[in-house]
Design a protein around this nucleic acid. Structure first.
Lengths: 214, 214
DNA sequence: TAGATTGTTAATCGATTAACAATC
DNA sequence: TAGATTGTTAATCGATTAACAATC
């Protein structure tokens, strides 16, 4: 195989969606699927599906289509769901607790091993086996344990401070829930979940769609 | 002005980001900014900024740049932050409570007027003045009040059921937090927040970035 | 006025779609 | 084998970037 070109972020962001649809198909005991049929289910073109998948390899078979289970596993591998990534949650407020309670992440290979907060009333408690620690012991904890990802659910003003602290400690991925763009002089991957941005886009799209309805 | 072409979703999704940067500038008492300087702050090209803004109108002035406050307000208008959209939260679990506690949404013109759940222990309680109602009275509530948006934080299996119920009642926007694509035979705008998708993309990007670091 | 910077057109780049030979 | 469907190349479409005349 020749040198692959870097896979575009547009393709990467579609992978989890493929993964979900394939999981559904598996659940329905469907063993094979053509790009055509999948395209109709997903509302994208068959061409795009074949192009996307071929960024990573030829997982299909002419005349047959794709084996659902095989493709599901392949995409799981591509997404690195077997990485055994370990994460900590920063901030045990509602958002932090919501993330801690999600069972989905562990299923996808992301293990949450600790939650950190400043509130003495929360410290020592557990959420689903995951202990809430005093944020004062964060450095110590990160040095002792393998921490790949920090999930940032602290208040707005604290976010850049905690982010920088984690990056300095060598944490390689930050999942940022604050409505700001983090700029860090470290080698770290940042993925944002900008809830209010998303809500504003919803509002815009509603306006567009219904602007003629009086 | 001639007939405008539909603004692409790529542009729309950048608007909230412009809005955040302009809010920052305002806070710093910066009154004017050129596309060049903004481009350096945001890490995008000046050309893109000018193109994006010109989808909506000529807000700048040759030789001067853009007036920060004016542009901030214009983008707010474009995003429809003066729409007085009213929303209900479906599901008073951690995610629902997290959304209810966010003060940001109200600042952006989205008012949450009710939370709905099945849990008798939660019904009747309040979160920041917002009452938690029995989901049995949802239909009644939506008919009595102006409800533009439903924020779906119910368990996975319930999501399509509640979504369909809201759409049937005439709710025009759904903000979906479940890891599924909703397909509804109604005229409704759906904006997804797929947390596990986002986390998987983070994992992928971390693998890509650090794959050579052993 | 001279300098700065926009609005806008043109050029480039990249992503999506179409087409089809290869092949199961 | 004949039919189906992939992998892949080519064509198209759309988004980003560059360039520059207009103008504050």
């Amino acid at each position: 195989m020749n040198l692959k070109k870097k896979v575009s972020i547009a393709v990467v962001r579609r992978l989890p969606r493929y993964y979900r649809y394939l999981a559904d198909l598996l659940k329905m005991d469907i063993t094979r699927i053509s790009s055509k049929e999948l395209s109709m289910r997903m509302g994208i073109t068959a061409s795009q599906i074949r192009q996307d998948l071929n960024c990573f390899g030829g997982f299909g078979q002419q005349g047959y289509g794709y084996n659902v289970e095989l493709l599901y596993n392949e995409i799981g591998n591509i997404l690195g769901l077997n990485n055994n990534f370990q994460a900590v949650i920063l901030g045990a407020g509602n958002m932090g607790q919501a993330l801690a309670n999600y069972t989905n992440f562990e299923k996808r290979g992301f293990k949450i091993i600790g939650i950190f907060d400043v509130n003495p009333e929360l410290i020592g408690k557990k959420i689903k086996d995951i202990e809430i620690f005093d944020i004062d012991i964060l450095d110590e904890f990160v040095k002792k344990n393998k921490v790949d990802i920090g999930m940032l659910c602290v208040p707005f003003e604290q976010t850049p401070i905690v982010a920088e602290r984690l990056a300095r400690l060598g944490v390689k991925g930050l999942w940022n829930f604050s409505p700001m763009d983090l700029k860090l002089p470290y080698n770290v991957v940042i993925e944002n979940v900008h809830l209010s941005d998303s809500l504003m886009v919803l509002g815009y799209r509603m306006n567009e769609k219904f602007k003629n309805d009086k």
